[in-house]
């Protein structure tokens, strides 16, 4: 059961500053369940840095919550268990396993225990294999393949499928449009729409303005590593 009163993703005064280099700041951003927000940024604006900060891969300060639970001080795997899924640029690293094996990596029993309560609201619905095959055309063909044999666009699809297998409350994607043609962009837009319709908050970081505008009416901007104040509830 999704609690609509609790924001799926809440970010306040969130700053990523790796090794004293130029940082990325989000003053305020709130996504409720089912929201789709796009953040536009040119190359080097800090999109990948921001998603690394969300994932806990680089140091960051400020408030970051998913479904009412703070993710600060959590390791990346704990963040995933608490309902944050992220798709980095390029989609996937390449271990020598098949797509099918990859999609079975999340421990469903443990995630179900978390989502059932006990330790509070956390992971959302875990998508079944048949649901993923329907959502992402071409995924079923990839299942027996080694990850290294996938094309770039297929990797993005598999990466989204993996994110949904963890049971996310919020899904953050970094440049998911890279390498996609018009048909691919349309499929991706529809897939993300379906994910949002299932109650998952979707945040897309991209420099592909037409895609961003097709997803949402008013994309936000990430500007030279310093974002303007997004405003309370912007995009929600």
């Amino acid at each position: 059961m999704i609690d609509l009163s609790t924001p799926a993703l809440l970010v306040e005064d969130f700053e990523v500053v790796p090794d004293g280099a130029r940082g990325v700041l989000i003053e305020s951003l709130r996504l409720d369940p089912g929201d789709v927000v796009t953040v536009l940024g040119s190359a080097g604006a800090g999109k990948s840095l921001l998603i690394s900060g969300f994932a806990g891969l680089v140091p960051a300060s400020g408030r970051l919550e998913v479904a009412g639970r703070s993710l600060q001080a959590c390791a990346p795997d704990e963040r995933a268990r608490r309902g944050l899924a992220w798709v980095p640029q390029g989609g996937l690293e390449v271990p020598a396993i098949t797509v099918d094996e990859l999609l079975d990596l999340p421990r469903r029993r443990r995630l179900r225990r978390l989502s059932d309560g006990g330790s509070g609201p956390a992971a959302g619905r875990v998508w079944r294999h048949d649901e993923l095959d329907e959502l992402l055309p071409g995924l079923s063909r990839c299942r027996p393949m080694q990850i290294s044999a996938l094309e770039a666009t297929e990797r993005v699809a598999v990466s989204i499928a993996l994110a949904l297998r963890v049971g996310p409350r919020a899904l953050v994607l970094d440049e998911p449009t890279a390498g996609l043609n018009v048909a691919g962009l349309d499929r991706l837009r529809r897939a993300l729409g379906a994910v949002a319709a299932a109650g998952v908050a979707v945040l897309v970081l991209t420099r592909h303005r037409p895609f961003a505008e097709a997803l949402t009416d008013r994309p936000l901007w990430l500007n030279e590593g310093r974002s303007p104040p997004f405003g309370k509830g912007a995009g929600a």
Binding site: A55, L57, A75, P76, D77, E78, A80, R81, A85, W86, L92, E93, V94, P95, A96, L102, L105, P106, R107, R110, L111, A123, L162, A163, R165, V166
Partner: peptide
């Protein structure tokens, strides 16, 4: 081979 990927699975 890809610990960051495994972390994404929780």
């Amino acid at each position: 081979q890809a610990p960051a990927l495994l972390q994404r699975t929780g």
